[in-house]
Nucleic acid binder design. Structure first.
Lengths: 247, 247
DNA sequence: CTCAATCCGTGATGCAGGTCACACCTGACG
DNA sequence: CGTCAGGTGTGACCTGCATCACGGATTGAG
């Protein structure tokens, strides 16, 4: 990992915490699921806010979540696992996302596991409180429906990304392009993405093996498309990524 | 396709129509999304019921659906396509499914294409009518939320099926097991699944090539696991399929 | 300071399945 | 009845990537 002079070297352990500093309405345009819940008067009084360390499991696939988790700071990965232990990460939830929503509505067990990947600040509302809150304000169901709708869209996008690509490089390129659009910071040197994920986690996101992620990222760096600096990815040549996706 | 003597030979063209005969509350246990809409008084008066031929496109990926489609008889495939023309079928919607729901809620374009694969009877409600109907009966939003929740679950299940399998045979086996559970008819000879899909369509469902579907189905038949009779699949040895999935 | 754990880089190998290229069959239709 | 289109079966080939198997670098714990 050749750090070019002048660039700041960032410790990984620092990076684990970076997302913590985000303001989750920094780019006002993106409508986050939790914004739908903002109107819910009474929410403030029953939620309990707390800090979770990296690696905390909020709820696991198959068990019923105790309630609804509103992610305020930090990120969490939503994943499903097969019997053989293979794990697939369906999405990285960020500040503003609401976890455990559909389990709260339908009496069903969670379909996926939610695990923090940063230190997180999370507002929790127990299922009973949440439901009775909604009962009292029935038009809020529309907001819930919209939030679910967003979840659905997100999942479909990710599914498309994975299943309609014909090479691992293309999948990775798509993922990076998405991220750079959604949360990238434009700098003179390119668009910076604060990733902080291991290659193994990236692999689970695009459903491939750790080794191929390593190799492809290596290729991208050698081609000058990307620069990796300890957890931060800088896209220097967006066009090159787009070409991989195009055809 | 060697038809063993004594078995009825069924014309393909007949099979295209078979789903038409289903009663969609035949097995009362399965809660279909549209059942959530049953309570909606006023729906009867504004819906328009009509018949679509096989191959009709209700709405296409990228355009806004004109309204909500409630599938009464027949089936439709929900698919997404890549720029290069590859198509992925996300699900086969059956009687009782509601199509175009999230687009009706969220001003957004449809994320997928809906195309009939049987001759279908479909109730249509324009977006405006639908929305104002909901406005008048706000608690119905809960039902909408539940319907979306179901859609989400279904998509997640299918995604799991596809991405956590490590062979095409396993994917196909999972698909068949699902179908045989949900809509299979138990007979002395095994569980019958009225499929009526081409190998190419099956391939798009499990994200593989037409040829591998042909080969795998061939293998299953040779092993005595399955019998194919012009569009009807009879599972003779469920255990064999389960073994493929287990490990 | 040592030891263990985790992450990253890289080569060698093998194979599942995509792709291409046909041949065959059946039903539809003029 | 000939022709045509769409669906199915099958062989040959070739490649992307999973897998195995390392070695080296960092980090954190004791």
């Amino acid at each position: 990992m050749h750090t070019t002079p002048g660039e700041v070297h960032v410790h990984k352990t620092m990076l684990r915490e970076i997302a913590f500093d985000y303001e989750y309405d920094s780019n006002g345009s993106a409508k986050k699921p939790s914004s739908f819940l903002k109107d819910l008067r009474g929410l403030e009084s029953i939620k309990t806010s707390s800090i979770y360390p990296r690696g905390a499991v909020l709820f696991a696939e198959g068990q019923r979540p105790r309630g609804v988790y509103i992610l305020c700071e930090g990120r969490a990965k939503i994943s499903v696992a097969s019997a053989e232990g293979k794990t697939l990460v369906l999405k990285i939830a960020g500040p503003g996302d609401v976890l455990g929503l559909n389990s709260a509505l339908t009496e069903n067990a969670a379909l996926a596991t939610a695990e923090t990947i940063d230190r997180c600040r999370i507002d929790f509302v127990s299922r009973e409180d949440f439901v009775s809150l909604l009962e009292g304000d029935r038009k809020s169901y529309l907001d819930i429906a919209r939030a679910l709708s967003q979840e659905l869209s997100g999942l479909m996008d990710h599914t498309r990304l994975l299943l309609l690509s014909d090479s691992a490089a293309e999948k990775l390129a798509k993922l990076l392009l998405n991220w750079s659009d959604v949360e990238g910071k434009r700098t003179p040197q390119g668009t910076q993405i604060v990733c902080g994920l291991t290659h193994a986690e990236l692999a689970q996101l695009i459903c491939t093996s750790r080794e191929t992620v390593t190799r492809i990222l290596g290729d991208f760096q050698r081609a000058g498309t990307l620069v990796l600096t300890g957890g931060v990815i800088t896209v220097r040549n967006r066009r090159a990524l787009e070409l991989l996706v195009r055809n």
